[in-house]
Amino acid sequence: MNGTIKPSARLRFWRVLWADRSARAGLILVLALVLCAVLADVFAPMDPSALGSAAARMQGPSRDHPLGTDLLGRDVLVRLIHASRVSLTIGWVSVVVAVLCGSFIGLAAGLGPPAVDKILMGVTDLFLAFPRVFLVLLLVSLTAPSLLLVLLVLGLTGWMSVARLVRAEVLSLKERDYILAARGLGISEFRLAVRHLLPNVLPTIVVAATLRIGSTILLESFLSFLGLGTQEPAVSWGTMIEQGRPFLLEGWWLATFPGLAITLTVIGYNLLGDGLREAMDPRTVVAGQRHARVFTTRS
């Protein structure tokens, strides 16, 4: 009970996750998208920014161009695949940043003296009071838009809920016997945090992170749509939607498909996140045993 998860528990975890149809779908979606992004050059070896021939401009979906072409004759599908890299990179990296910050703050608040806890949580709640969009826009307005800025801003505005989650977990774990025993052995607070608490808080963090990736991608696409996100040539799905906006009716494929891509991605992460949460909950029973609970009539 000192941080390593029993192999049988691990097996059970995977079994429950796989048994849940939605979680399974989510996992597959996420993996497929990650693969697509990583192997973008393999799936679509063409240069997404290369101008196409004049004849190929503004074509609807066809056999040659399954998702159509844009104003400059560029294939939408190719651009979509390459743009997935941008969106996914930003999604993952900024969530990692947010989770790192949040975990650190949450741990510090949970383990530290009450004064520190109060201050940290006060700051957290303060930042939570802002609708995230406004905070992001405020920060973005300070300097010129770029990929790095987006990463930083998204990361710096997303740590708050993670911090609260981690703190809550730490507070509840703090009183557990094995922690008290470890303390009794004279282990330093830092070691305690890293070796004993962290592995037990990790499941919660992973679930939170997975669910956050979805909302981060949504926010990033909105920023790109506004032109405040990544700049050419690193085009993101949001930028593609913005480029398709003037041609909403005549060139509907330009704005529609990137949006669908975003939706699918976020659905995948949400399903996976929900599934992970269910799978990590020790109370979840594999389907079939659930019915036994039904008849709880009194005497």
Partner: peptide, 15 residues
């Protein structure tokens, strides 16, 4: 509905 970009939903509604 929860997972789609809201601005894109708006555009689709307009479309």
């Amino acid at each position: 509905v929860y997972s789609l970009p809201n601005f894109w939903l708006g555009l689709m509604l307009i479309l």
